[in-house]
Structures are given as C-alpha cells and as structure tokens.
C-alpha cells in the first residue's frame, strides 16, 4: 500500500513545493491582474525567504510525524523537501545580492558582517550547503553514521532562520513568534523522544 502511494505523493509534494515559485513568476510577468506590488524586489525577497523557511519547517515535521503515526515511508519525502527549502533560500540570497544590491560587493560584505540579522541568515544558508551536497543516496551510504550527525545541523539552521525572520522585522513580532513556537515544538519533540530512548536504554 505504502509503496504504491510514494510515487504520486512525491509528485504532489514536488508540485506543492513549486507552487510559490510559479506564483511568483506569474506575478513577476504580470499575468492577468497579478503583480508584485509597489516594491517588487522586497516582495520577491520576502516570498522566497518565507517559502524556504516554511518548507524547512515542513521538512522538520517529517520525523516526529513518522514516529507518531508509524508511517515510515514519509521519510521518502524528506530529501525533496530539504532540497526545495535550500533552493528557495539560495534564490532568496541571490535576489538579495543581485536585484537588491546589484552586485555592490563592498556594501554587501559590510552588510553581511555588520548587520546581525543578515549575518545570522547568511550563516544559516551557508550551513545548509554541506547538507545539500551530501543528499545523494551514494554519499549518504558512504558517510553512514557521520551523515546522520552532519544532518543534525538542521537543528541549528532552523532557529537561525527564524531568528533572521524575527530580526529583520520592523515592529510586529507576531508571525516570527509563531514560527519560533513551531520550531521550539519540533525540536522539543525530538528532545522528548531522545530522553525517552535514554530511559529505555538505562532500564534494559
């Protein structure tokens, strides 16, 4: 049953992940009544950043969901979700250096170092890079336990992403705080699971 579902589920996940990007393209090309509003660069930056962060949080829900439901095949969707998140956040960064700053490298480097929220966001994205390039089956097999350890970086990346989101905001912390709550919940579930496992080990 499960294996039959995987292929269509993968297609659905892929299409769902592509939706924000396609929507952005339609708006950028002003299809029908769509447009990017008064500040298009900002709109593209925010849409890409938030889509990437959303998909990152969905990626983080896979493992707890699997443990609760016993639907272990869900893990087959995790890599795709992670890579989509990386793709959106890379485009977010590319938009920032090209459309926003127009390759003004000097201002850019100052911006990345001097502005804590940009430093934080940049660090998060940089940490995603090793995860993205070690995502093939072959490398995953070769690295074995090391792969699992390396990919725990995501537990650092997600809070960095949320901090970046919170910090760039002007005043209204509501949305970033919701994201912070979700990340806390997702990481907290892992700590609970880990603590439970430790207890089991000690008992046996």
């Amino acid at each position: 049953m499960a294996s039959v579902l995987i292929a269509p589920l993968k297609i659905i996940t892929c299409l769902a992940c592509l939706t924000p990007f396609v929507w952005l393209l339609l708006r950028a090309f002003a299809i029908g009544p769509l447009d990017l509003g008064a500040n298009p660069v900002e709109e593209v930056l925010h849409t890409l950043g938030k889509s990437g962060l959303n998909i990152l949080l969905i990626t983080l829900t896979i493992t707890p969901l699997r443990r609760f439901t016993g639907l272990h095949w869900l893990v087959a969707l995790r890599r795709m979700l992670g890579l989509f998140s990386f793709a959106y956040l890379s485009l977010h960064f590319l938009t920032y250096i090209t459309l926003d700053w127009g390759f003004a490298w000097n201002s850019l480097i100052v911006d990345i170092i001097a502005r804590p929220y940009i430093t934080v966001g940049f660090t998060g994205l940089a940490l995603m890079f090793p995860l993205a390039i070690t995502s093939t089956n072959r490398i995953q097999r070769r690295l074995g336990r090391k792969w699992v350890k390396l990919h725990r970086l995501i537990y650092v990346i997600a809070p960095l992403g949320v901090l970046h989101f919170y910090w760039q905001g002007i005043r209204d912390p509501f949305e970033p705080l919701v994201y912070a709550g979700i990340v806390t919940l997702l990481l907290g579930l892992r700590i609970l699971y880990w603590a439970g496992k430790q207890r089991m080990i000690r008992k046996s």
């Binding site: 500040n39 298009p40 660069v41």
Partner: peptide
C-alpha cells in the same frame, strides 16, 4: 542599527530598478 540608510528603493519601480 539593523540596516543601512545610505540608499533607498523608490516604490513603483521594476524588479530591475536600482537603489
């Protein structure tokens, strides 16, 4: 403290309008 005030973005520009 959190961003540069050296340049600005005019609203109503295109995706490729410079600061």
């Amino acid at each position: 403290p959190r961003w540069s005030q050296a340049s600005e973005r005019r609203i109503g520009g295109s995706l490729f309008s410079a600061r």
